[in-house]
Design a protein around this nucleic acid. Structure first.
Length: 253
DNA sequence: GGTCAGCACGGGACGGATTC
DNA sequence: GAATCCGTCCCGTGCTGACC
């Protein structure tokens, strides 16, 4: 008997990774998922324009992604609003993006170069801060003993005190449905940035205090003067983490 | 009633696998 | 290597339903 035959029963009980991979094994569906990583809710028409495909094509892809559990949808009248199914989906996508080979897209204008530089520096990853800034925050919190490595990152007592001192309410114990502290493999920097409930709370706090400003219809975050001062004072972030690099991000290999 | 967003369907294009 | 088959992606068209 072949090994495959002998294992049929156990194979049938394993998670169907192939089905999940097949969902993402299409550039249009992948582009839709990456667009939704901004944590926003998009209409089918907006996603069609973003992915540069016909609305009918978008409908087919959205049906697959929704039925596959990657996206959630909400109907309001004639509009169909879709978003990622949840933070775990976003973190999974960001982690996969960190492992994916880099597709080199030629830069044709100064505006494109500035956009890529800004995206590399600071952006949203669903509901938390990613990019060089997000990585710098996670590393500074670890260096200062606010986070510790223990089978993954955990918030230390000092970290909880620090969050409470900032006035971040989510420093309390985690909600049952979501990990307190998690990390995502950042797809531009390829190092870990902070996610989970603490990462989301920190991002909300930064928005409320105008430390960062989110541009409309993009994932790009702009660090304000107040934000630079706050991150420098609170975490000792260096200038290279607080300002977009003048050099374009180096191509990944 | 006109307009708009989205859906279902049919068909063409394309690429990979298989067969001869 | 050529022909064929099959699956997938995409688009155009017509239709439906909601909004104004």
């Amino acid at each position: 008997m072949k090994r495959w035959d002998a294992d049929q029963e156990s194979v049938a009980e394993t998670p169907d990774l192939a089905a999940l991979a097949a969902l993402l094994a299409d550039r249009t569906r992948a582009a839709i998922c990456m667009a939704l990583l901004d944590g926003g809710t998009w209409t089918a028409g907006e996603l069609a324009e973003y992915a540069a495909v016909a609305p009918s094509t978008t409908t087919e892809h959205l049906n697959l992604l929704v039925s596959g559990g990657l996206l959630a949808e909400e109907r309001q009248g004639r509009r169909r609003y879709v978003r990622l199914a949840g933070p775990e989906t976003a973190e999974t996508l960001e982690n996969l993006a960190g492992l994916a080979p880099y597709r080199q897209v030629p830069i044709r204008s100064l505006a494109e170069a500035n956009h890529r530089r800004a995206l590399h520096h600071a952006r949203t990853c669903y509901d938390h801060i990613a990019g060089a800034l997000g990585v710098a925050i996670a590393e500074a919190m670890t260096e200062r003993g606010l986070l510790a490595r223990d089978y993954g990152l955990v918030l230390t007592a000092a970290g909880a005190d620090w969050l409470a001192a900032l006035g971040i309410p989510d420093a309390a114990p985690p909600a049952a449905h979501r990990a307190h502290v998690r990390t995502c493999l950042d797809w531009t920097v390829r190092r870990q940035h902070l996610s989970g409930a603490v990462g989301a709370a920190l991002y909300r706090h930064a928005l409320e205090r105008d430390w960062v400003v989110k541009a409309v219809a993009t994932r790009i975050l702009t660090l304000t003067a107040a934000g630079r001062a706050a991150f420098r004072a609170q975490l000792g972030l260096p200038d290279e983490a607080l300002f977009p690099s003048l050099a374009l991000p180096a191509p990944r290999t």
